[in-house]
Design a binder for these strands. Structure first.
Length: 877
RNA sequence: GCCGAGGUGGCGAAAUUGGCAGACGCACUAGACUUAGGAUCUAGCGUCGAAAGACGUGCGAGUUCGAGUCUCGCCCUCGGCACCA
């Protein structure tokens, strides 16, 4: 072996060996349990960033660990290769999106390969290739048949910057998920997938995921679906029996407090009666409608606004007539677009009523603090309580009233129990070229007709005029849109919108199991072996986008009969962001990343940074920001691999912070990982010549020197720690444990030329264990050294090596240190056997010199002994 | 405003789940080796103190023989949501 650790050389060597031998190609086998390890697939932008490196290093560590633990591991990778950046590139540089994408994939695959990730490259999927998107279309047609895909005219979320439609999930928070700019609304006809059909299942299924998914993701999904239980109540309007306004309320118990009905400006009743409204009212309504189209500014609280239409509605409970208003705070998209306004018990209604001087009545009181029901209402009291001024229901508790009044409304036919959801159907139409065409044809004779399954895929044309102005480029390509009606054979027009790229990622990981199937997206029996995904890893920015869509898709696949389970991902891990240190010039805002040659950092004697200057002497400020090219604080993974090696880069990323924490990239930190690998390399190099020969296998009761015995104990303690950590998805602590073990190997102070045969065997056992445990973090180095130590060139994978087995007996120390406290304060330490009886420990502690000093002249009240840990002497006086 | 997560050395963090706070690493300090060091090795490194020792996990209380960990109250930071009836 080389004297020096030369990362590039061994990395290239092992990458070739793995690739040539098909080491990571997955096959269905009977004699091992399967493990499906998956990471969120990359968008082929052309450049890998450190976030990818983190994501994939974690995934690879698990894949390696599971392989060494005897699992049959499937660890695939593919490309989320449809999407807007390809079109942006086409607009900006006139390149063909397809060529641009293919080239990027090639470049990024190279980057991934240089990291030595253990993927089964043979199973790659490419979203932009017809053999894949054919099945997006296949699924679409299935959903169309099932009534789960439909078209309607609605206000869609529209991003002016990107000139693109967004789903609700992609416009969450009123900001575009891609560019972060505020979202506006636009009227557009578009195709929807009925995610709401599975709303209850999507929410209830979260219970099953509690044990394997991060809590915050579950919480966000639950909030996003936003189920709320209450009742619909009909208010007759315009003095007619037939015309009704249906409201949704969760507080039917407050219905005697209704002072008005408030409608969203877009409510159909408004249009129906618009002719009867005064000019002033019509103008105001138009104004309110326009306001809603504007982008939402989150910082500014919107003032309540509205107008009395002059219409009257009848409260079916009280028989009271109340005015019908239009209000800007009522959303057409939620509930029924109409609310019963109860200012006494709802904050928003209170604000509205206060502003317009509408009457406010109290109908709920707190039974414990009696108030005069007629006293003026100072604020909205939304707490539940006991009903007052509520006809026959007066005196009931809110809970009782809710159930009784709902039943009453139902019996009389003017209401019913209802559930509403915040979740809305998924709008998938995109006026884009670079996506999967929606397989629908419009025929003048037959109307909307689905394409025939046998005509799939509906292929994208070679070229289209891409302008980035918001219309679908496909609408300008006659060869594409001119079609034959699948029903009557007449001339017809093809749908020119393409699907949201989130469609591709909703089912891609099933395709890996059977990636070249031409008939079906995948064969159910093949998927049955590999799926569901055992461990999924990605950023939590997808908590409500991709991760809701893919759950929805699985439920549809189950109903089609492709899979048998409800939830596609058993365990989910969300890794934290990788952020960069930036130095910037406060006056110009110009940012500089921190390679030491460009920024001079001054520190005090403790190492704390006191200031920073650019090379020209300007004083710089320090900040931590999301890594990005525009901020100039990005780190190029290729450069890291070039300088430090893939193993050190990967190891550092795992070691530097817990996976779910944000990771601040410090160039210096990576050197620690390099030093560790070099130290290990030197140690193995020193011992390797004497270990090439077969050494005796150590038995459990081998008679060992003190040094060798201690080493063996440490080795086994480390095996336990590393095994447990990896099993519970911790990666920083096992790396630390391996560093400790290497420190112990050095501390043992054994030398090859003086060591006994037993000591040599103990060192060898320790080293082999270290290398096997290192493989998940630094596989190339581990393989290379392992091959050297065991004298077999093929390495771990080829030899079917297994994770070292922990032995409780060997991990146990003969003598352990036990803390001795007096009144809870640490006073001394004693040494004892780990299984010394409590009585022995007690008397040993009491006899201790320092303890004696502290208890002299006092009464020993009691002595608490915690086996293997401490003795606490409690004294008084 | 509502919901969630979290405050531990100069920094990233550990802490066997109520039992020796600060493992491991970075940075820093001193020394050795060296033609050289941004290599390697040795030692030091929570605060105060010469030492003995005292204090120390955001702040204040409580439970306990014992609290970073449990309970209550407050402060701060970071995320998510935004009139969801």
């Amino acid at each position: 072996m080389d004297e020096k650790y030369f990362a590039k050389k061994i990395e290239a060597k092992w990458q070739k060996i793995w690739s040539d031998s098909g080491a990571f190609a997955a096959k269905i086998v009977d004699d091992k349990p399967k493990f499906y390890q998956l990471e969120m697939l990359p968008y082929p932008s052309g450049n890998l960033h450190m976030g990818h490196v983190r994501n994939y290093s974690v995934g690879d560590a698990i894949a390696w660990y599971k392989r060494l633990k005897g699992f049959n591991v499937l660890h695939p990778i593919g490309w989320d290769s449809f999407g807007q950046p390809a079109e942006d590139a086409a607009v900006k540089r006139g390149v063909n999106p397809r060529d641009w994408t293919e080239e990027n994939i090639k470049a990024m695959r190279g980057q991934l390969e240089r990291l030595g990730l253990s993927y089964d490259w043979g199973r790659q999927m490419f979203a932009h290739r017809p053999d894949y998107y054919k099945f997006d279309q296949w699924f679409f047609l299935k959903m169309y048949d099932m009534g789960l895909a439909y078209k309607k005219l609605t206000q869609v979320n529209w991003c002016e910057t990107d000139q693109a439609t967004l789903s609700n999930e992609q416009a969450s928070g009123g900001l575009c998920w891609r560019c972060g700019n505020p979202v506006t609304k636009k009227d557009l006809e578009q195709w929807f997938l009925k995610t709401t059909a599975y709303a209850d299942e999507l929410i209830d299924g979260l219970d099953e995921l509690e044990s394997g998914w991060p809590q915050h993701v579950i919480k966000r999904q639950r909030d996003w679906i936003g189920r709320s239980e209450g009742a619909y109540v009909d208010f007759a309007v315009g003095g007619s029996e037939q015309e009704k306004i249906k409201v949704f309320t969760t507080r039917i118990d407050t219905i005697y407090g209704v002072n008005s009905i408030v409608l969203a400006a877009e409510h159909p009743i408004v249009d129906q009666y618009i002719g009867t409204f005064s000019e002033t009212v019509r103008t105001k309504i138009e104004e309110l409608r326009q306001e809603k189209l504007k982008p939402t500014d989150r910082e500014v609280e919107i003032d309540k606004d509205g107008i009395d239409t002059g219409l009257k509605a009848l409260n079916p409970f009280s028989g009271e007539e109340v005015p019908v208003w239009v209000g800007n705070y009522v959303m057409m998209e939620y509930g029924t677009g109409a609310v019963m306004s109860v200012p006494g018990h709802d904050e928003r209604d209170f604000e509205f009523a206060s502003k317009f001087g509408l009457p406010i009545r109290r109908v709920i009181v707190d039974p414990d603090t009696p108030v005069d029901p007629d006293a003026p209402v100072d604020a909205a009291h939304y707490e539940k309580g006991v009903l007052v001024q509520s006809g026959d229901w007066t005196g009931l508790s809110s809970e009782q009233a809710i159930s009784d009044m709902t039943a009453h409304a139902q019996a009389r036919g003017f209401g019913e129990a209802a559930k509403t959801y915040r979740l809305r159907d998924w709008g998938i139409s995109r006026q884009r070229f670079w996506g999967s065409p929606i397989p629908i044809i419009y025929c003048d004779e037959c109307g909307t007709v689905p394409e025939k399954f046998e005509n799939l895929p509906v292929e994208l044309p070679e070229n289209a005029p891409i302008t980035g102005t918001g219309e679908s480029p496909l609408a300008k390509v006659p060869e594409f849109y001119e079609a034959e009606c699948p029903r009557c054979g007449g001339a017809a027009r093809r749908e020119t919108d393409t699907m949201d790229t989130f469609v591709d990622s909703s089912w891609y990981f099933f395709r890996y199991t059977d990636h070249d199937n031409e008939i079906l997206p995948f064969a159910p029996e093949v998927a049955e072996y590999w799926t569901p995904v055992d461990q999924y890893i990605g950023g939590d920015d997808h908590a409500v986008m991709h991760l809701i869509y893919t759950r929805f898709w699985s439920k549809v696949m189950r109903d089609i009969g492709l899979v048998k389970f409800d939830e596609p991902v058993k365990r989910l891990l969300t890794q934290g962001m990788v952020v960069g240190e930036t130095f910037f010039d406060d006056s110009t805002g110009k940012r500089v990343y921190h390679p030491p040659d460009r920024v001079a950092v001054s520190r005090d004697e403790k190492g704390k940074m006191t200031g920073a200057r650019a090379s020209d002497g300007t004083e710089l400020k320090y900040a931590i920001e999301r890594m990005s090219k525009s901020k100039g604080n990005g780190v190029d993974p290729d450069e890291m691999v070039e300088i430090y090696g893939a193993d050190a880069s990967r190891m550092f990323v795992l070691f530097a912070a817990p996976v779910d924490h944000e990771l601040v990239w410090h160039e210096a930190g990576i050197e620690g990982a390099v030093r560790f690998l070099q130290r290990l390399w030197r140690f193995v190099g020193k011992w390797e010549p004497s270990m090439a020969a077969e050494l005796a296998v150590l038995t459990t009761d081998a008679h060992l020197s003190e040094a060798a015995k201690t080493l063996r104990q440490k080795t086994h303690q480390t095996i336990k720690r590393v095994d447990q950590s990896l099993d519970t998805l911790q990666f920083n602590t096992p790396v630390a444990a391996l560093m400790e073990l290497l420190n112990s190997l050095y501390d043992a102070k054994l030398e090859p030329d003086t060591a006994t045969a037993e000591e040599m065997a103990a060192v060898k056992e320790s080293i082999t264990s270290t290398l096997l445990m290192l493989a998940p973090f630094a596989p190339h180095t581990a393989e290379e050294l392992y091959a050297t130590v065991i004298g077999n060139e093929n390495g771990m994978i080829a030899n079917g090596a297994r994770f070292p087995v922990f032995s409780e007996e060997l991990a146990r120390a003969d003598v352990i240190e036990i803390a001795v406290q007096v009144n809870g304060k640490l006073r001394s330490r004693i040494f004892a056997s780990p299984d010394a009886p409590n009585g022995t420990l007690e008397s040993q502690a009491l006899a201790d010199e320092k303890v004696q000093e502290h208890i002299a002249g006092k009464d020993v009240v009691k002595v608490i002994v915690v086996p293997k840990r401490l003795v606490n002497v409690v004294v008084r006086g």
